[in-house]
Amino acid sequence: MIEIRQLHKHYETAQGRVEVLKGIDLDVQSGTITAVVGPSGAGKSTLSHCISLLEKPSSGQILVEGKDLSVLSGKELCAERRAIGTIFQNSALLRRMTVAENVALPLRNLGVVHHEMENRVAELLNRVGLADWANSYPGELSGGQRQRVGIARALALRPRLLLSDEATSGLDPESTTQVLELLDSLRTDLGLAIILITHEMDVVRHIADRVAQLDGGRIAEYGELRGLVADPGSVTGSKLLPLRPDLVPAGYDFTLTVAYQAANVDPAWISRLGTEHGARVALLGGSVEAHHEGTLGRVEIGLAGIAAEQAIAVLAGWGLRATPRSQQLLSSVADRAERIEVAV
Rank of each mutant, 00 (worst) to 15 (best):
S136K: 07
L157Q: 14
A79F: 12
S326P: 05
I207H: 03
N135M: 08
A316N: 10
Q6F: 11
L241Q: 04
H292L: 07
Q328Y: 15
E65P: 05
A208Y: 03
R298Q: 04
F88R: 02
A35E: 13
R81N: 15
W318D: 04
E116T: 02
E300A: 10
Y137G: 14
R95W: 01
R226D: 01
L7C: 03
V103G: 10
E289K: 09
K239G: 04
P173Y: 06
L54T: 05
E101S: 09
H8C: 01
E341F: 14
W133P: 02
E338C: 01
A104H: 04
V28C: 10
H10Y: 14
Y252E: 00
R325C: 02
C78N: 15
A268D: 15
I219P: 00
H206K: 14
G274V: 02
N90Q: 09
L54S: 04
T86C: 06
R272S: 09
N119M: 13
S52D: 10
L77P: 01
L130I: 14
G139C: 03
A304I: 02
Q310Y: 06
V128P: 00
S287L: 14
A262G: 10
V258N: 02
G286W: 06
E140C: 05
R336L: 09
L190E: 07
E181Y: 05
M97H: 09
R218G: 12
S59N: 07
V18G: 06
L7K: 04
R82I: 00
G85D: 11
A279G: 08
E80H: 05
S45D: 01
S169T: 06
S238W: 02
H199F: 07
E224A: 13
L315S: 01
G16V: 03
A311N: 04
R205W: 10
V149F: 13
I301G: 00
A316F: 07
A208C: 11
L171Q: 02
R280C: 10
V121Q: 02
I306H: 06
Q213R: 12
I301H: 01
S185T: 05
G319N: 12
